[in-house]
């Protein structure tokens, strides 16, 4: 375990005109940690995720990332090309809607292989073998490798999107409601898969979700957001078992028991 965080976020804010997206968010993320960001729609959690993954530029604040050479780089001062390279190699982004993260009209194998080619792999046989390996890790049969994701179910598409993101061995993965819109049985399978992959690969991840059960299963740490601000943060089980902020108490007490 290293003593330095992977990502340092300080006083990050994003305003849309006079409207607050996220306001004064600070935290550190260490390698291997999964941080859940929870809150209801409009709480600013997706804005925060988009700022961190540099899909959006913040209005103020800083975020620095420890590159593979150990040097911290300020994300918002990198060139567009550098940021794109980071996104293709060291980071992953799992969208709620797989169609946003996949190319729907090329084969499953090509979806996975494309990320490998982006980092310089050129050997067709090797790329295909890695693609087959990753499809099996996300429980997609090898004989579906030449099918387009259009022909896949929602759960399969989401698993394919995860394979596409993880194939390059990223160190940090952003996930936006990764189980949103899936049936509960499909969700359980996906969560189990994600849990295993995150543990085996030692990934750091930031998972945005409104589902506290998903946060409990996947994350060790949690931030609760409301109106763009972090109202409570801490260990996931601590926040859920002993919520202290009024809003967190409301969220936790609103969970339906089955």
């Amino acid at each position: 375990m290293t003593d330095e965080p992977l990502l340092r976020v300080s006083a990050l804010s994003k305003f849309y005109g006079s409207r607050v997206g996220c306001d004064n968010v600070s935290f550190d993320l260490w390698p291997g940690e999964v941080l859940a960001v929870v809150g209801e729609s409009g709480s600013g959690k997706t804005t925060l995720l988009n700022c961190l993954s540099t899909r959006l530029l913040p209005s103020s604040g800083t975020a620095s990332y420890r590159m593979r050479d150990g040097q911290f780089r300020e994300l918002y001062r990198m060139s567009e090309a550098e940021r794109r390279f980071l996104m293709r190699t060291d980071w992953g982004f799992v969208h709620q809607n797989p169609a946003d993260g996949l190319r729907m009209t090329v084969s499953a194998g090509a979806n996975v292989g494309e990320r490998l080619m982006a980092v310089g792999d050129r050997h067709y046989g090797k790329i295909r073998a890695t693609a087959v390996d990753w499809l099996s890790r996300v429980e997609i049969d090898e004989d579906r490798i030449d099918d387009e994701p259009r022909a896949f179910s929602g759960g399969m598409r989401q698993r394919l999107q995860i394979a596409r993101n993880l194939v390059t061995g990223p160190r940090l993965v952003f996930m936006d409601e990764p189980t949103g819109g899936l049936d509960v049985s499909v969700q359980a399978r996906l969560l189990d898969l994600l849990r295993g992959l995150v543990t085996d690969l030692g990934l750091a991840a930031i998972v945005v979700t409104h589902d506290l059960a998903v946060a409990r299963l996947l994350s060790q740490r949690m931030m609760v957001m409301k109106d763009g601000r972090v109202v409570e943060s801490g260990l996931t089980d601590g926040v859920l078992d002993d919520p202290r902020a009024p809003y967190t108490q409301l969220l936790v007490s609103s969970i339906l028991q089955v």
């Binding site: 801490g234 260990l235 089980d237 601590g238 078992d241 002993d242 202290r244």
Partner: peptide
């Protein structure tokens, strides 16, 4: 016990 485990604040 929960405080000793860091579960309760």
């Amino acid at each position: 016990l929960k405080m000793l485990y860091g579960n309760y604040a």
